[in-house]
Design a binder for these strands. Structure first.
Lengths: 253, 253
DNA sequence: CGATTACTTGAATTCACTCAATGGCGGTGG
DNA sequence: CCACCGCCATTGAGTGAATTCAAGTAATCG
């Protein structure tokens, strides 16, 4: 399967988690001209203030939306995994309001915003599916505010790892509790509003309690249920339809 | 002007901040059956987990979206002001993922989600306008994550007050730096992820530096520019078109 | 007017931070 | 192939911002 097709496949799987698309609608997405680009870690893809004409889908690896305070502190407000369109907002907002960067080596597919806009106008159900997707993104943001605002570091990190794990699972990227985890502790710290030093210590605590195992570039969660308890994690806010997971795992075969 | 008409007027003003609506589109909104309800402060309007058939617009006063942690800590992730539809998400997400409550005495207008969905299907440009609105909501959430995650209490509170002030200004609810501010310090604390005690101290500091003046139920910002500097505030993330403010002030006459 | 809610202030504590030094791993180039 | 460099992670020590607990004052409402 070509990269391009695969990107769209992931995307379609996500969109179809609520209602099936017609052949015509699917075709409209497959026909979107896409330019595949490979990136190293920590490269900006779009910058805050830009008015981009292109948007992109993540195919492989991870990206993050972030902002900086004047004194240089960084906050990551979203982690993007394969299948995500991190800057779908550009469809209706001129200026982009945060920077987006790769946080691991990754592959992305660029497309013209204008093309997608045309598709959305032509196929209202696709438009609805994308809209739904941005609403889920907003729900995740609400949970992040809670996470950063009211949970202590230990719980907070556990929660983040749960979210990551469950979202990856939903696109078929987890194998018996193990998934690619090429994210530095500094990035995790920026995602949780903690310091890198404290992140190191907290991860050590999670490891020592057997809640996570970290190898080279991968992370294993031996008992997700237990980690969820520690992280006060309830997946409702991800708005995953039960069928979504099932369908993805079928597709992966 | 009846309450109902006024609700829709505010809404239309916001939607029209990007492109003007046709007479027919406007009519479709005016014709939405709406039930006006008056609420005391601190009343839940919808609860996390609900699958409501109705949604609502805020007409007067303020509401908040919030979540609780298992140990009872509360985090407010959004403040809603007149003209907002706090749970627009219900249009495409079955379950609501946070609770929404009044935080001051307020008036809201309920409508059937199904009615709005029909309007959106019929008028794609209205759909786009509402979509844009949810995208702005998401942008505000991103800024909240930054605010709660990376700014110290003093800056954080100043930022929140700036946002509040600018958003109110955009719907014509600020008069020479003064606006209604019937929000308790406990609620402000929950919105910033701080303790109520610390909120009290920090507000005192802001007052003593002349950055804010708080009377009975109102707040005055004598020099918004200065408060913006303290709060590291840059209004870009609100995606207000310049025309929006102008148009609102015209309409207010 | 009494009861309740909101706000203020002080004191002690704690969680997470900063600073600083060290260890490990991987990549690069001599 | 090894030495070196840079990035990432770890650990210790001291600090500090915001918390909790507790008491008391002011404002609001029935």
């Amino acid at each position: 399967m070509s990269n391009t097709t695969q990107i769209i496949k992931l995307l379609i799987l996500k969109l179809e988690s609520v209602f099936a698309l017609t052949e015509e609608e699917r075709r409209a997405l497959y026909d979107l001209p896409i330019q595949v680009v490979t990136l190293k870690a920590n490269q900006d893809i779009v910058c805050i203030g830009d008015c981009p004409l292109q948007s992109f889908v993540v195919l492989k690896g991870f990206a993050s939306s972030y902002k900086l305070t004047p004194d240089g502190h960084r906050q990551i407000m979203a982690l993007h995994i394969p299948g995500d369109i991190p800057d779908l907002q550009t469809l209706y907002l001129k200026r982009i309001d945060c920077s987006i960067a790769s946080i691991s080596p990754c592959t992305v597919g660029f497309f013209q915003v204008e093309d997608l806009r045309r598709v959305c106008e032509r196929y209202p159900r696709l438009s609805a599916a994308f809209w739904r997707d941005t609403l889920v993104g907003a729900s995740i943001l609400r949970e992040w505010v809670l996470n950063v605002g009211r949970r202590d570091s230990y719980t907070r990190i556990a929660h983040l790892l749960c979210e990551f794990s469950v979202r990856l699972e939903a696109v078929g990227l987890v194998e018996s509790g193990t998934f690619e985890f090429s994210i530095t502790q500094a990035n995790l710290a920026d995602a949780t509003g903690l310091s890198a030093v404290h992140m190191s210590r907290a991860l050590k605590a999670l490891r020592s309690k057997g809640l996570i195992q970290s190898r080279r570039m991968s992370l294993t969660v031996p008992d997700l249920k237990r980690l969820m308890e520690v992280g006060e994690f309830d997946s409702h806010y991800l708005h995953l339809e039960k069928s979504a997971t099932a369908r993805v795992s079928v597709a992966a075969q």
